[in-house]
Structures are given as C-alpha cells and as structure tokens.
Design a binder for these strands. Structure first.
Length: 430
RNA sequence: GUGAAAGUAGCUCAACUUGGUAGAGCACUUGAUUGUGGUUCAAGUCGUUGCGGGUUCAAAUCCCGUCUUUCACCCCA
C-alpha cells in the first residue's frame, strides 16, 4: 500500500465493532466520572511546546524524544503527549476561585513518536481526570477509588493497584542523592543501562528488569527511608483511607513514574494482559508551575487501547461491539412503489425509526440486501399492494408476514419496534 | 533510537526452500424460484503478489532499498 491508502505509522482507523466498543467505553466513563462530580474539559490537541517542557520536565524521554514538535510562524507547537499539562495550562489561565476544588475529566487522543508495538500506538487515547482540591491523602484515595470503579464498570477484573510515593518535593533531591550513594559500591554489578541511569534518572534503576540489577536493588534500604517523616505519613494515610473504602492495593516500593511533576502519591494499575504493556493506567499527585500560577492536584490516565485489548482478552468486547440492527428495510417493486417508500422513509425516520432501502433491483436482490443488513423487518410493496392500499410487513427472524393497510403502517411499525430491544443510547465522538 | 520476524483476492491462508502461465476456503454477483431473504445446488467475478530498483531468457520466489505491521528493548498509559 502507498502513503495515499495507509494511515501514518502507529496510527490507525477505528471502525465497525471496534468503534462501537469505544463509544460504549467512553459513555460508561462519562457516567462514572460524572457520579464523582467531575466535568468534561476539552483542551486542544495542540499546545505550545513549552507547556509540556515546563510541566513534564525537559530531561524526560517524553519531551526529549517522543513529542511531535513543529514550527509555524516562528513559534514552536506540539501535539499533546499526555493530558495533564493541557488541563493545567487551562487552569493556570483562570483565577483561584475557578480552580480551587475543580474536578475535570478528559477523553481523547494523545501523540507520542515511539516505536509502535502491542498496546502502544503513536496516536493513542487516554481517559483521565485532574482534581485540584487542596492536597490531602483523602482526595488521593478517592481518586484511586474512582479509577478502580471505572475499570470495573468496564468489566475488568484481576486488577492490582501498585502504590508508592515520590515523597514531598523537598525530599526528591536528597532521596536521589542517597540512592546514588547506596548504589555506588555496586556499580560494577549493574547493567549498562543502569549505570547510565545513575547519572540521568537514578530512580529507574529500581524497576530494571535484569536479574543482577534486581539483586542489587533488593539489598538496598527502601527509598522511603531516605524521605521525611511527613512523606511516609502521607503514604500511610492514603493506604489507610483505601482500606476504609475497601479498595485493595499493594505497596510497591520499586514503582517509579517518569514525569517530573509528581510528588507524594504515585500509582499504576496493572492488569493480566499478555505482552509487556500490562500497565493499564497510572496516576499520581503533582505540582505544576506555569507562569505565575502553581497548581497542586491529583489525577490519573487510563490507556484506552490497553483497556480495549484487556476487554477483548476477557471476552467482553464482542457484546459491546455488536451492531444495533435497523428497524426496517423497505422493498419496493416498480417506480410507484419506490417513490412511495422514499416518502415513507422520511416520516419513519422523523418518528425515530431506522430504515433503509435499495434504489432498485429485483425482489430477490432487495430481500437479500434486507437480510444482509440485519434489519428486523422488511416492508414489501409492489403494484398490487399499492393498488389495494396495503403493504406486507415481514419479520425477517421468524419469516412471519402480515398485511397492513397503508395508513396503519407507521403505527404498526412503531408498536413492533418499541416492543423489540430498545435502540442504543446515543454517544458523542471525542 | 536498538535488535528481530512478516506483507499474496474483500477476509483467512497456500505456492517461496529448489525461479517456469498465482491457487483454495469463506465472502461477493447471477441463476435454479419471470413477486419473498437465510439452507442447498450450479455458474461467474475477484490480484500491478505492499511499493521501487537489481540479477535473469524468465521473479510472488533470489538480492538491495523503502513503506507498513508484529515482537523484544528503551520508555510509558
């Protein structure tokens, strides 16, 4: 295929059963988040590059290697690689009265120029929330509960919350320095990547997958032991609030999250999905300074592709991807019947019924089209029926057919349609 | 950014090793039934073998490049 018929690498068209599943996921998410008092916020897909450089951190891989950056009219823009920074950019332009206690959620595409693989696309989709209430372990625990409720509303099971803390901002530098000092005697035992990490991103040594590195890390004191009492108490408080709410979790002292803006609580939610992308979602408490405003909040993001894959694996996707059948397929033989059906379709649709017809063709081909469409009923009219003022309504599932008077058609179809399965709720694109 | 595998009809795949007219199933169209779908039977359509170049009398097949997909790193949701 050529560039004219293929999407860009790592980006894909979402169609058919997949798009129906996604709409259901989005509607379900809106429902859950609304019950927690969150309002939808739609920020642009493009921002000034600096919005992300400031908040995510200019040494992170996301900023250094993965952002789609381009220049236009002397300004540098980028496609958003995540959702939090844009929401904070919005908040920073508002006054404190409008941001204190704000609860926003978002749903939409993000862009990172990484090498694609299972559960990782260059255009991917996240569902996330940001809560700007005054920092408190209570709020963090509530947000975690929300996230688990949402994942469970989608039907996911066997999820594990891995909970940890980055500590208060004042603890970051001392903790990193202490970790470097603790690792120094073992440098020769570490892998090449980890020796590089000591200088650049020392926390990443903690979650290295190589056995020798794991052995070294296992012998180190917990990272929290390098933090202040306040930081340890904060984590304990979050854990205890989770217990009160009955939300299961596990403390994972080796959990690391890469973006610079996190402080205190951080977490990931891991599913059982195959492959290396088992993290379905992540979140944490953060502090972001943009312009004159410094904003503290807590939030999470869920990878929609990964959730969809998990639903697929659990056998839950098919039910939500099923097409809603048409109420009716109109079959007409001859010009007069076709014109009559054309007019009838308009009033049926105005009445809320879904219907289609073929522009022509034999009785057989029209009936085949009706069958193939999955419509519940076929309405059949030819010269004879028009002359007699009637139409034949056939139930395509049972083969039963009844003859109706023309003036009774619409009412009868309404009644039958209402008795059948209700049509799916409407959804909005994102 | 690093390392590896794959791409043939609308779909799932065969033919590639050892170069010699590109095939099957499903799907699709039509007919058996001149006004009734699904099942059955019969016939038919279906391709610039991802794209571009090279080797050769001859390339789906061998070689090079490129695009895309997949997998593992890196990183992240």
């Amino acid at each position: 295929m050529s560039t004219l018929t293929q999407p860009i690498q790592g980006m894909s068209d979402i169609t058919g059963a997949e798009v129906r599943l996604w709409r259901w996921m989005e509607e379900t998410a809106r429902g859950v988040m609304t019950r927690y008092g969150f309002e939808e916020l739609r920020t642009p897909l493009m921002e000034h590059e600096s919005v992300f450089v400031r908040s995510i951190g200019d040494t992170t891989d996301v900023v250094q290697k993965e952002m789609y950056v381009f220049e236009k009219g002397g300004r540098r823009y980028c496609l958003r690689p995540e959702g939090t920074a844009g929401v904070m950019r919005h908040a920073a332009g508002l006054g404190p009265q409008e941001t204190d206690g704000a609860r926003w959620f978002y749903l939409g595409p993000m862009f990172r120029c990484e090498r694609p693989q299972a559960g990782r696309k260059r255009q991917f989709h996240q569902c996330g929330v940001e809560c700007l209430e005054a920092p408190s372990p209570v709020v963090d625990a509530e947000i975690l509960a929300l996230q688990m409720d949402l994942l469970q509303a989608w039907g996911l099971k066997n999820l594990a919350i891995h909970l940890n803390t980055r500590g208060a901002a004042a603890d970051h530098a001392p903790a990193a320095a202490a970790l470097r000092a603790a690792l120094a005697p073992h440098e020769a035992e570490l892998c090449e990547d980890c020796r590089r990490r000591i200088g650049q991103n020392v926390l990443r040594v903690l979650d290295c997958k190589n056995e020798p590195c794991k052995a070294v890390v296992a012998g180190l004191p917990a990272l929290t032991s390098f933090m202040s009492q306040e930081s340890r108490d904060y984590l304990d408080a979050v854990a205890s609030h989770l217990s009160v709410m009955g939300v299961p979790y596990m403390i994972d002292p080796l959990l690391v999250r890469g973006l610079d803006y996190y402080e205190h609580t951080i977490w990931e939610i891991v599913g059982t999905a195959a492959g290396s992308q088992s993290a379905l979602a992540g979140g944490g408490r953060y502090r972001i300074r943009l312009g004159e405003r410094e904003l503290c909040g807590v939030g999470f993001a869920i990878g929609m592709e990964r959730v969809a894959a998990a639903l697929e694996e659990a056998g839950l996707a098919a039910a939500h991807g099923a097409a809603v059948p048409l109420d009716l397929w109109l079959v007409g033989l001859g010009d007069a019947a076709r014109e009559a059906n054309l007019a009838l379709m308009r009033s049926l649709r105005a009445a809320g019924l879904s219907c289609r017809m073929a522009p022509g063709g034999s009785m057989k081909s029209q009936m085949r089209a009706a069958n193939k469409s999955g419509a519940r009923f076929a309405l059949i009219r030819g010269e004879d029926e028009l002359a007699a003022g009637t139409a034949n309504l056939k139930n395509l599932a049972t083969g039963e057919q009844e003859t109706l008077k023309t003036e009774a058609i619409e009412q009868r179809i309404q009644a039958i349609s209402a008795a059948a399965a209700p049509t799916a709720a409407s959804g909005e694109p994102t």
